[in-house]
Design a protein around this nucleic acid. Sequence first.
RNA 1: UGUCUCAUGGUGUAAUGGUAGCACUACAGUUUUUGGUACUGUCUGUCUAGGUUCGAAUCCUGGUGAGACAACCA
Length: 566
Amino acid sequence: MTDTNKPSENTTRSLNFIEQLVEKDINNGRNNGRIQTRFPPEPNGYLHIGHAKAICLDFGIAKKYKGICNLRFDDTNPTKEDVEYVDSIQEDIKWLGYKWENIYYASDYFQQLWDLALNLIKDGKAYIDEQSAEEIAKQKGSPTTAGIESPYRNRPIEENIRLFEKMNSEEATEGSMVLRAKIDMSSPNMHFRDPIMYRIVTAVAHHRTGNTWKAYPMYDFAHGQSDYFEGVTHSLCTLEFEVHRPLYDWYINQFANSDYRPYQTEFNRLNITYTVMSKRKMLQLVEEGLVSGWDDPRMPTICGLRRRGYTPTAIHNFIDKIGYTKYDGIIDMSLLEHTIREDLNAKATRVSAVLNPIKLILTNYPEDTVEMLEAINNPEDETAGNHEIPFTKELYIERDDFMEEAPKKYFRLTVGGEVRLKNAYIIKCTGCKKDAAGIVTEVYAEYDAQTKSGMPESARKVKGTIHWLSVEHALPAEVRLYDRLFTAENTNEEKNLDFREMLNPNSLIVNTNAFVEPWLREAKALSNLQFQRIGYFTVDLDSSPDKLIFNRTVTLKDSWAKQQQP
RNA sequence: UGUCUCAUGGUGUAAUGGUAGCACUACAGUUUUUGGUACUGUCUGUCUAGGUUCGAAUCCUGGUGAGACAACCA
């Protein structure tokens, strides 16, 4: 490419290491140049933003290289899995904007896997072990010392077959026996020390196959085979599965009857500061009532982020910015916050809300007069239009926007000072009233009738602009101010503390004294708003015209507040 | 005293033997009817010691540090 035909704004973005690998595979004609991926969640919890990273890769690679991506539920452990999760996972993937080619379940392959296991037994490569879990664990050795062989390791093939059948019969008893691959008890890779292939589960029914099966395959015996059955070419997963890869290949090589092979590649999982990224911990937060549910707006789940007011676009941009590598790091929460501010700045409708009201009376404004003023919906988007907001003699303004005596750099309302009321008039403060305790209860000002927005006089330079609401028309609202869930940057690093001890006590502050402009009475759930000068908010799922509830997505950047800090 | 993996500003990520760049953060300034946005600038980096080479973040060797692996979880 010459300089002249380069795209002007941006040169081609460099490929991440997985894209490079895929391109190499295509060029080498591996698997005939076919590209197929899969997203393989276990339906045992809700999807979180870490999954979004995997989803964007799995679906993104397929799309970019004209392949396909399937959704496959890795449902091999009925004790943890549930249809509730199957449904939510599909909803969340769709919300992110992806569509799978096919939907599969590992449980679809239970019969095929069974047959494969039987063949392995017949080949003398698998055996039934009747020891307890504890004994088997003890014999496994440690990463630095070899394990020892099970006394059942060399039992006759016929006996293995008979017992394997028993594992899946009415006589099956949980914990009584397992099927193990016969590989190498002294392998430096722990996963090769006669890994368990099948165990018995009878206590609970499988969410899809009910009580048909008593013996269920383990992850290692199910995942690679499922990939093979489906024709997956690139099996992408997170770093912790690196040590499983040799076993993944080993199982497939036992039965593969062609040159086709799926290849596993691992990338770094997502960690973000001030939150947790573990399904186990999230489940604990939900079950112990430390959050209101999986979709609590403080949760890093997809549904939590959605209820918080995050958009699919912001999540995609975030994922694009963090990249895929093999380095296990931790991303600043501020990057996530940047991507949602960036998207909402372009999209959110600007409205007025007063969170901590104080009354402002315009002493020279006529009584019983209501002016309908124009408010621009979004200065970043001319097509967004505008709406009307009522203006009267008595207004609410933020308590923070008035100071009787103010420091030099305070640009808001002070006695004797001028300020602009957004979309309205320039006013001059004449004084205030205080109660016995010295708390300001009312602020007085005079308005300049020649300075209404749009009039020539309104072009006058005034240092500050504040927002306001007509007392008569303002709607009461509940405003939920969300903040980061944890006080520690990296909860995993604080080895002496349980993660629950690091919860941020101020992660949710409910404000029931707020007011919003009347235009918001019918605001739709999950619509994105900017409360001007305050932050981005969304309408909560439980909001109604009779009881308006708004969730803070993220604050606006506030260089004044920052300056005020020591 | 094992196997595997990783190491570039505060954070994340490029540069694939040839000028260490980008984003976020922080800080300063310009513009502004949002102390927002936009724009401009500043600070800060190749873990370490050798080697190969005209030339090394990149290749080789040895250190150091970090992570993963010992569930009848995935």
